[in-house]
């Protein structure tokens, strides 16, 4: 395994270690399910940003495996979704209720579905089969990014501080994007 992969794996499990610390230390989490849903969503978004940064920042490009970071983001998204189902007692009608009535849930589902083709086509063989089409498919990452932020924005009650932080990161991605067009993503 290359050192890039090892480093990426380490970064990928870092949040799990931090969360374990929070739970093991006497820092009681009073509403653990809600806490974990919230934090896994944030981690997924942060890794999504990291994927985009890896294409744009030389030092990250050299030392990290971008594909793995993308898959990490998706893995945390899966955790996020499974916990959400758990929060609804794995009850189909509860989940259906939410899907029909809550906008942020709808946006979340769309983002998750758009993520699937990216995950499936991350396989090297499929990537080879797809040829130049692969690149266009993977451009949907920008749409997923946008939808994730809208999803989070719709959940906030009043304090928009974290969304400002994410918007700052987005701005950074956009500013760095001109270079990418020259060299490919």
């Amino acid at each position: 395994m290359s050192y890039q992969n090892i480093l990426t794996y380490l970064i990928a499990i870092l949040p799990i270690l931090l969360i374990m610390c929070i739970f093991v230390l006497p820092n009681d989490v009073i509403n653990p399910i809600s806490y974990l849903i919230n934090i896994s969503g944030h981690i997924s978004i942060i890794f999504l940003f990291l994927t985009l940064f890896t294409s744009r920042i030389e030092i990250l490009k050299k030392n990290l495996n971008r594909k793995l970071i993308g898959l990490t983001s998706f893995s945390y998204l899966l955790v996020h979704v499974i916990l959400y189902f758990f929060d609804n007692n794995f009850n189909y009608s509860y989940v259906k209720d939410d899907l029909l009535s809550l906008k942020y849930i709808q946006v979340g589902y769309i983002a998750m579905i758009l993520y699937l083709p990216l995950v499936i086509s991350s396989n090297n063989f499929i990537k080879f089969l797809l040829g130049s089409l692969w690149k266009s498919i993977h451009k949907t990452i920008y749409i997923i990014m946008g939808l994730s932020l809208i999803h989070y924005f719709l959940v906030i009650k009043a304090d928009y501080l974290i969304i400002y932080f994410y918007l700052f990161l987005t701005l950074f991605v956009l500013l760095k994007s001109s270079k990418i067009q020259k060299h490919g993503p």
């Binding site: 509860y94 209720d97 809550l102 906008k103 719709l154 959940v155 009650k157």
Partner: peptide, 8 residues
């Protein structure tokens, strides 16, 4: 319902 939370 509240737009963010099902109140059921």
């Amino acid at each position: 319902n509240h737009p963010r939370w099902s109140q059921k």
